[in-house]
Structure formats: structure tokens, C-alpha cells
Amino acid sequence: MSLAGHDLPAQQQSDAVMVVDGITKRFGGVVAIDNATFTVQRGAITGLIGPNGAGKTTMFDVMTGQQAPDRGRIELDGRDVTSWQADRRARAGLVRTFQIPRPFLGLTVWENLLVAGTDATDEGIVTALSPRGRHPAQGIVDRADDVLALLTLEHLADDMASTLSGGQRKLLELGRAMMRQPDVVLLDEPTAGVAPRLRESLVDRLRGLHEQGLTLVVVEHDLPFVMDLADRLVVMHLGAVLIEGDPDTVRSDQRVLDAYLGGLHG
């Protein structure tokens, strides 16, 4: 039983940019997600939290179209996208990062950003052989420059992504997502492995993106951090959505405490 839809004012409810509706996903006999329902509000930072094995990463996979759910539907911007492949959802403005970052290791940092920023129309063979294919569009170059500056990765522009540290790879992935100029970004543990010094500035960047109107969904293990960052929280436990609401409501909910304590002891 979700609290969504009862506590929210009608106007805010209609401004859901993503709706997760009754999603179930099984792997063999294991139920990874169990009839989960929640909404992602436009322009908000939504924290998706829960103990290990709660199904958060699988939820990201289903939301982005990397895995097909066994039941339920996903809505993006009012459209049913359940049958859409991951690339189509990405073109519709939904991007993600991965828990273990997946930069293109054999490409430079610069190339990683350009790949993400270039649209399919510019990646054709005809373009490749025409003078236009010689240099990337100025708009993309400028954007990549800005992203590099924002993430303080300028000095690494021509380095291979394989030489980056774990934290730098996280940043590069975030940069790649920003190059897509998305509407919704799903961040899977954005601060894991990022050095404390960078972490502060990373949080500032995320807030900055939020202020520009970007919708963020963040999976995070660091509870104080996510309580502080997020406007809304969705708590998952054993594949089900336990509660959905603002951080204060969630903080005081007995079920959440039980889930975390249970998670610690189990």
C-alpha cells in the first residue's frame, strides 16, 4: 500500500514525470521487485533507499528499460514506455549512471563526453564522409568543455578513461549523462568511491542541476546524505515499496526503522 496519491496535492500529483506502476520482476524463483508503485515528481530530487538486496538497482534497470518487468508498467512524461528499449527511453530524455561505473575504457575522457553528446543523426555514414564529419559540432564541443570544467576533469581530457580512479569514473559517468541534456537522471550511488574533497563539490553540482530544473532519482546507501539532499524518499524493502513521502515522514516511520534494523541483523 503506497501513500502516494493520498497525501499529495492534486496539482503536484499530476506533475509526475515518471510513474512506476505495479512493477514485478523475478529472476528464476527470486522476486527482486514485488508489485512496486511510486511516482517521480518533475524537478524533484527523489531518493530511492533501502537495505542491501531491496531491489533498487533492479528498479533502475526496469525504469531505464534494461530489463523487462514481468508485470506492471512504466510511464515517462505521460507515455507508457514499458515496451520501449533502453535506447529509446534515453532518447526521450531518461539517462542513468551505474553502480559500478561503466565509462568507455578504451576512449579518452573527451571522447566519452563527445559520444554521449552526439545525436544519432550526426553519427551516420554520410556525415562521416562529408566535411561535417571532420569536426564535432561547436555546440557539443562547448558543452563538453563546460562539463569538463564543472566536474574539474579538464586536466584529464586526453587521458584514457581506463586510467581514471573509481571516483573520477563516477564523475565522468555523471558528465556523460549531462551531455545528453536529459530531463530525468537516475544516479546509482553517485558518491560511492568519490574522494571526500570531491564529494562536497559533487553534491553542489547535483543541487545546481536540480535548480536548473533537472529531475534526479538517487540510489544511495549514505542515509544522512540522501536525507539531506532529497525532497522525497521512496523506501524499498525486499523488493516492495515500503513508504513514499518527504524525508521527515520517512524518518519517523516505524516500518523504515524495522526494515533497516532487520536488514542489519538478517
Binding site: 528499449q85 529509446r88 534515453a90 539517462v95 561503466r102 576512449l107 544519432a120 553519427e123 545528453r180
Partner: peptide, 15 residues
Amino acid sequence: RAVREDEIATRSLGK
């Protein structure tokens, strides 16, 4: 080259 390095990540960027 991006596809070669990581097809899933490439697809998640809309390709």
C-alpha cells in the same frame, strides 16, 4: 568504438 567498449552503456546513452 563506444559500442565495442560497452554496448549496454552505449545503449543507455540513446544509441
